[in-house]
C-alpha cells in the first residue's frame, strides 16, 4: 500500500512554491479534466493529479503522464472554479523531474524530418517545457 501523508510534505511545499498555487484549494470538481484536450493521452486526469499532489503522493505524481502530454493550453486554468492555475502545477511537476536533469525530450534524438518540418517555435517551446 502506498503511504499517504495528510500533512504538507516537502514535496507538496515544493510543488506549491514552484507553481505559486495552493493545491489544497482543489475540491475535485473535475472541470479541469473536462476542459483538458489531452487527458485521453494520459494515464490520469488533471483532477486526479491534483488529488495525488494534495496527498503528497510524490512517486505517483512524478511518474504520471499528464504533465508531459499537457500542451500548456491553459483551458484548465481558465475554467477552474477555485481559481487554481493548474497549468502552473503541471509546470511544477515537470520541473521537479527536469531539475534532476531528467529530460523528457532529447533534442539530438528527434528525426531529421521532424526538425526540418516544424517551425522553430515548436522546437523552442518543446525544449523549454521538456528539457532540463
Amino acid at each position: 500500500m502506498k503511504k499517504i501523508n495528510p500533512h504538507k510534505t516537502n514535496f507538496i511545499r515544493k510543488v506549491e512554491e514552484i507553481s505559486g498555487q495552493n493545491i489544497g484549494l482543489c475540491y475535485q470538481c473535475g472541470t479541469c479534466s473536462g476542459s483538458c484536450p489531452n487527458f485521453a493521452e494520459a494515464d490520469i486526469l488533471p483532477r486526479q493529479l491534483m488529488r495525488r499532489a494534495q496527498l503528497g503522493m510524490k512517486e505517483d505524481v512524478l511518474q504520471s503522464k499528464i504533465a508531459w502530454v499537457c500542451a500548456s493550453c491553459l483551458s484548465c486554468t481558465a475554467n477552474c472554479p477555485r481559481g487554481i492555475d493548474i497549468a502552473k502545477v503541471m509546470e511544477a511537476v515537470r520541473l521537479l523531474s527536469l531539475r534532476e536533469n531528467i529530460d523528457y525530450v532529447n533534442p539530438r534524438e528527434l528525426s531529421q524530418e521532424t526538425i526540418a518540418k516544424l517551425p522553430q517555435i515548436a522546437m523552442i517551446s518543446s525544449f523549454r517545457k521538456h528539457t532540463a
Binding site: P107, R108, L110, Q112, I115, A116, Q120, M123, I124, F127, R128, T131
Partner: peptide, 10 residues
C-alpha cells in the same frame, strides 16, 4: 544547422 545542432533552440 537545426538538424545538426537542435540544442541551439535552448
Amino acid at each position: 544547422i537545426y538538424k545538426l545542432y537542435p540544442e541551439l533552440f535552448r
